[in-house]
């Protein structure tokens, strides 16, 4: 019910690389899970409000008061490739932003 192509498409969206074997097992496992999940597809839930959250708070806001930021050394402490006070990454080959 979910085929190779879909698996590959979803993997691309999720920035995961799967080898051929993984694609096969993934297709099988996801299909099995979705088969179980699909039972809810048959429920008639017309007009039922979806619940995305159980807390019913509103307007929880923060005063516009600046706080002290991290010292750059700390901000960059875990960076895989710090350079010149910034985080270095391979250049995106596609669009310049």
């Amino acid at each position: 019910m979910i085929d190779r192509e879909q698996v590959l498409h979803v993997a691309r969206l999720a920035r995961l690389r799967l080898d051929d074997a993984e694609v096969e097992t993934m297709a099988g496992e996801l299909s099995g899970i979705l088969e179980h999940v699909d039972r809810i597809a048959d429920l008639d839930l017309e007009g039922v409000e979806p619940t995305s959250h159980v807390v019913h708070l509103e307007n929880v806001l923060r005063a516009d008061r600046p706080w002290t930021s991290l010292p750059p050394a700390v901000a960059l402490a875990s960076a895989p490739e710090p350079f010149d006070g910034a985080f270095r990454v391979p250049s995106p080959q596609a669009d310049a932003d």
């Binding site: 979803v10 995961l16 391979p90």
Partner: peptide, 30 residues
């Protein structure tokens, strides 16, 4: 990190995450 960006993303996430995490990321993305 010396390849292009997409390559870095995919290599990092494919090696960094275990099978169950990948499975659920795939399920949720789908």
């Amino acid at each position: 990190g010396d390849e292009d960006l997409i390559e870095m993303y995919e290599s990092t996430r494919s090696q960094g995450f275990g099978a169950e995490v990948k499975r659920r990321i795939m399920l949720g993305t789908y």
